[in-house]
Nucleic acid binder design. Structure first.
Length: 399
RNA sequence: GCACAGGUGGGUGAGUGGUUAAAGCCGGCAGACUGUAAAUCUGCUCCUCCUAGCGAGGUACGAAGGUUCGAAUCCUUCCCUGUGCA
């Protein structure tokens, strides 16, 4: 049955399980690479598959602006459009409420954005954000929320949380009424390299079952009691999964940890917990150890494009002059195709020369490193190896 | 040989008498990056010294000399480069 979360192993606070979607099974804890525009920058979907990526993140706001939801919907949704057969989660645009703070205006009804592309004005309500995500057809979609900025005063955090709760209710209500409109299948275009899938799943009466599900998002700023309240009230509304939003917005790492720790106990154990926007490899491993099931972050992909690589020995800024004649592998302990084949001197040269290949190889490595890290954590949880692979969140990597 | 045009810091290129150690860009060196307005952004980039500062000296706009309180900027001579004409 599609869209079940199966919790399989619990080890202390950590858990391992499976997220069953209409586009494959996702082993949790999982790290989701970010493919905002229907593309993980620099890496083609087939390479992502080779790397073992089981679920990708896409972005409603960006795809809505270009190429437009209708275009994507007609091609069988984002899966068909980008030729990706595995799972997808779309973010609602809530983060853009935060990041485009000079280009948007928030009201009770929703958010008005000025497009960062051409300045045109666009309105997102909880309803329209869900409608757009239904059109995009991701397996998991997110309620529209207001990602509270940091720092925010207590009153501001409360008001923002209340707004997010009201929007969560509206998001859910709209979703319940329209979820049967989710596009199905990914083989819509003749000649598409993506094989056509079977008919949409049906229940015993023969009616199509919705393969999409909507997650709620907990806010509350850095106020621990508000986080608790936000979690409880979001759970009360009822979602098949819960996200922790409004983190990694500039607060000190210790605060992030505090908030996560204060929130998790108020979330149901049988539903996936998604920590949005986190983090470094160490942080990802540590949060998985604390009981987070899903994470996403632009760090591995963006840092890669900027020459910052994550390795078993810590960060490597491959642009540094010291690597100009370094014949060694980027990370001798890494089994990825980049580390197997190229030396640091070459990677530095590619970066220094502005070669597109630098971005491709660096991104492949960083994603490999993240996926390996999480894979180890999963095994570690399942095998009961202790916390070796999910150290304290605040431990500093060697560099 | 003659006539124009021009020679500026690692490169390119502004500046044509006074906050000019000399814009901008490139290059070089570092740093940042955490639900992607990000193949982006920030800082440094002549030398020496220190109390490390919109600090003190020293060099510097082809070369040498000159005018001037003051010159990358004006004058003279020389050297070099490009274009055209012989």
């Amino acid at each position: 049955m599609a869209n079940q979360f199966q919790l399989e192993v619990t080890r202390g606070s950590a858990r391992a399980g499976k997220l069953v979607t209409a586009h494959g099974v996702v082993e949790t804890p999982v790290f989701m690479p970010v493919g905002t525009l229907g593309s993980v920058k620099g890496v083609a979907p087939d390479v992502l598959e080779e790397l073992g990526v089981e679920i990708l993140l896409g972005n409603t706001y960006h795809l809505y602006l270009r190429p437009g939801v209708e275009t994507v919907r007609r091609m069988g949704g984002l899966h068909g459009f980008m030729g990706w057969e595995r799972a997808i989660l779309t973010d609602s645009g809530g983060f853009q409420v935060f990041s485009l703070n000079h280009l948007r205006k928030v009201s009770e009804e929703g958010v008005t954005f000025r497009s960062h592309l051409d300045g045109s004005s666009h309105f997102f309500s909880p309803e329209s954000a869900i409608a757009a995500q239904i059109g995009l057809g991701a397996d998991i979609i997110m309620a529209l929320d207001e990602c509270t900025e940091y720092p925010a005063g207590r009153e501001r955090a409360r008001a923002s949380m209340e707004l997010t709760l009201r929007w969560a209710e509206r998001s859910k209500k709209y979703f319940q009424a329209h979820k049967q409109e989710v596009p199905w299948g990914s083989g819509r275009v003749p000649g598409s390299p993506v094989p056509r899938r079977g008919p949409p799943p049906t229940d015993h009466a023969g009616d199509a079952i919705c393969t999409q599900r909507l997650f709620g998002i907990v806010q509350g700023g850095m106020e621990l009691d508000l986080r608790k309240e936000s979690a409880e009230r979001t759970v009360e509304i009822g979602f098949p999964g819960y996200a922790l939003g409004g983190l990694s917005v500039g607060e000190p790492r210790e605060r992030t940890l505090e908030v996560v720790n204060a929130t998790i106990p108020h979330l149901p154990t049988d539903k996936p917990r998604y920590l949005m926007g986190v983090g470094t490899p160490e942080e990802v491993a540590a949060y998985a150890g604390l009981g987070i099931d899903m994470m996403d972050c632009v760090l591995p992909t963006r840092a890669a494009r900027h020459g910052l690589l994550f390795t078993s020995a810590g960060k490597v800024s491959i642009k540094q002059a010291r690597y100009a004649n370094d014949e060694s592998a980027l990370d001798p302990n890494c089994g990825c195709r980049v580390c197997q084949r190229y030396c640091r001197a070459y990677l530095r040269h590619l970066y220094a020369s502005g070669e597109v290949l630098a971005q491709v190889l660096n991104t492949v490595h960083n994603l490999s490193f993240y996926l390996d890290t999480v894979r180890r954590v999963r095994h570690s949880i399942r095998l009961g190896e202790g916390t070796r692979y999910y150290p304290s969140v605040c431990s500093r990597p060697k560099s």
